[in-house]
Amino acid sequence: MSTIRPLWLLLICLGSALLGWIAQVALTGNGYTSPVLQWPSLITMLAGMAITFGFGMRVRRYTQGKLKSRLDPLQAARTLVLAQATAYAGSLIAGWHAGILLDLVRGAGLGNQVVISSLVMIVASLVMVIVGWVVEQFCKLPPDDPSAPGSRDRNREEDEGYAAGTN
């Protein structure tokens, strides 16, 4: 599985910023409200980040050899996918709100409630990207060096049997 690519995060952010700006101009020009996420979305984003980080900490404890029970490889793979999805979603949401903010700041000023909501969502989204990247780092396998942390408690034959499903 490939790792998070910062260039892709940047391209997603820029693309969604363009789409957010177009949506903002089109909707507000026709009398609709700005398409920003509301405050309850922040709670959902924070809960998603907490869950992602919690799963990531379990994987990290396993790779460091601090987890007494075995970690299902499928759970570790799902945690990695969740971390990457969190980072990409954060990039998408940050770009969308940055595009909206580009149009709002020149007309509404910094004291507007929609501007404040956009800024809060951008900051929370950037935290999502960071959490996703950190959890992805937690999911990296330790080196094959027997003296490396986390590999001292595991027997290679046990790992091979476990991965093959014979245990």
Rank of each mutant, 00 (worst) to 15 (best):
L10H: 00
C13I: 02
L14I: 15
G15M: 10
S16W: 11
A17Y: 09
L18R: 03
L18M: 09
L19E: 02
G20S: 03
W21R: 10
Q24E: 13
T28I: 10
G29P: 03
N30T: 13
P35M: 04
P35T: 10
V36H: 10
L37K: 04
Q38I: 10
W39T: 12
W39N: 05
S41Q: 09
L42W: 10
L42E: 12
I43V: 15
I43F: 12
T44Y: 12
M45V: 15
M45N: 09
L46C: 11
A47C: 08
G48P: 10
M49P: 06
A50R: 06
A50E: 06
A50T: 14
A50N: 04
A50S: 13
I51W: 11
I51H: 05
I51D: 05
G54A: 14
G54P: 00
G54K: 00
F55N: 14
F55Q: 13
M57H: 09
R58W: 07
V59T: 12
Y62M: 08
L67E: 12
L67R: 15
L67T: 09
R70M: 12
L71W: 03
L71H: 04
D72V: 08
Q75I: 12
Q75P: 00
A76D: 13
A76M: 14
A77C: 01
A77M: 14
A77S: 14
R78D: 00
T79R: 07
L80D: 13
L80Y: 02
L80H: 11
L82A: 15
A83V: 04
A87I: 06
A87G: 09
A87L: 05
A87V: 06
Y88K: 07
A89K: 05
A89R: 06
G90P: 10
G90R: 10
G90K: 07
L92C: 13
I93P: 04
A94V: 11
A94F: 01
G95K: 07
A98V: 12
A98Q: 09
G99V: 03
G99K: 07
I100N: 09
L101C: 03
D103S: 14
D103N: 13
A108P: 04
L110D: 02
G111A: 13
G111N: 15
N112W: 11
Q113C: 00
V115G: 01
V115L: 01
S118K: 00
S118Y: 04
M121D: 03
I122W: 06
I122M: 11
V123P: 00
V123E: 03
A124N: 12
S125A: 15
L126C: 15
L126N: 11
M128Y: 01
V131C: 00
V131G: 03
G132H: 05
G132Q: 08
E136L: 02
Q137M: 10
F138M: 10
K140D: 08
P142C: 03
D145S: 09
P146Y: 07
P146A: 08
A148T: 02
P149A: 14
G150T: 09
